[in-house]
């Protein structure tokens, strides 16, 4: 048993899991509030990456330092993508709030295709190089070989976001309103909560984390195209279901489990079976715990 190899795989699984988690948080929050699987979520991730690329490209002409470019491009991309999330909700999902859930689901899939093709036409179908925005720094010797700077940044960022979201939902007025809306929309409205505004906030927060994931992973892999959101979105959706959709710690746990499963399967068995292994785990967990790792069993109202 080679421990160093084991830990390398562990950290590569953690990196993957962190990326999935940033996306899965958006799926799970939206599902928690309006019981909708927002399939356009992966596209918000992709739009975040594209916006950051465009802004960073423009800023690099001014000769600013790399760190300033990173911060400015990220801020612009995060705000812009959040606006996309907000707009998508307003024009595509809100009119269908009273419609059967299946209609909203189909609209979500349509929105995903629309955004992909819109980017394809408005930008390009080629792969584009993404600038190396993450600062390269070396970690202490004892860590050095197993995890590199960008990977470390990715999971630290995810941890911060997760803690911040948990605090937001547990301890703020907005979080309380979100929980209330999630439990019973009508009752929440009767108690004076502006349900529409709370739903908009949820979409904005979800889009924010997705775009953050887009910027981090694109900078890490160094390339983007209009299709990157699809696979990442599907994997994050699986992670959210695995952890128990609707639960925030569940989304993070599910993502880490999925990332680890893929990484260890690729490292010890074969990378051809990476996806097979991930879905076998999903099936097994759902057989024994149909509501996911941390999900609450839904009480069927008769």
């Amino acid at each position: 048993m080679n421990f160093e190899y084991f830990f390398r795989l562990f950290f590569s699984g953690l990196t993957r899991g962190s990326i999935y988690a940033l996306l899965a948080l958006g799926y799970t929050m939206v599902y928690g509030i309006i019981k909708l699987i927002n399939f356009a979520h992966g596209e918000i991730y992709m739009i975040g990456a594209f916006t950051a690329l465009i802004v960073a490209g423009a800023l690099s002409l001014t000769g600013m330092p790399a760190l300033a470019i990173l911060v400015l491009a990220s801020v612009v991309a995060l705000v812009y993508s959040s606006m996309y999330g907000y707009t998508v909700e307003k024009i595509a999902y809100k009119p269908l709030r009273q419609a059967p859930r299946l209609s909203a689901l189909i609209v979500a899939i349509g929105m995903s295709m629309f955004l992909q093709n819109y980017l394809l036409l408005a930008q390009t179908s080629n792969f584009l190089p993404f600038p190396d925005l993450l600062p390269e720094f070396s970690l202490p010797e004892s860590w050095g070989g197993m995890v590199n700077g960008p990977q470390f940044l990715i999971f630290v960022t995810t941890a911060i976001i997760m803690v911040a979201l948990t605090l937001l939902i547990k301890f703020t007025r907005m979080g309380k309103s979100m929980r209330a809306t999630s439990q019973d929309k009508v009752m929440a409205a009767l108690l004076g909560i502006n349900v529409n505004r709370i739903i908009s906030y949820t979409f904005i927060i979800g889009s924010f984390t997705a775009a953050l994931g887009g910027i981090l992973i694109s900078s890490y892999t160094g390339q983007i195209n209009y299709f990157i959101g699809f696979l990442a979105g599907i994997k994050a959706f699986v992670a959210a279901v695995l952890g128990g959709i609707g639960s925030i710690p569940g989304a993070v746990l599910g993502s880490i489990v999925l990332g680890m499963a893929e990484s260890f399967a690729a490292g010890y068995i074969s990378s051809v079976y990476e996806d097979v292994f991930a879905f076998v785990i999903l099936v097994l967990i759902l057989i024994f715990k149909p509501s996911g790792l941390l999900g609450k069993p839904e009480v069927q109202k008769v």
């Binding site: 795989l9 993957r16 990977q151 992973i217 990484s263 690729a266 490292g267 990378s271």
Partner: peptide
């Protein structure tokens, strides 16, 4: 080995 096209991260196979 085969690798998965479009995966977010190839560090496992690179390891």
């Amino acid at each position: 080995e085969g690798v998965t096209v479009g995966a977010v991260d190839y560090s496992a196979i690179i390891n």
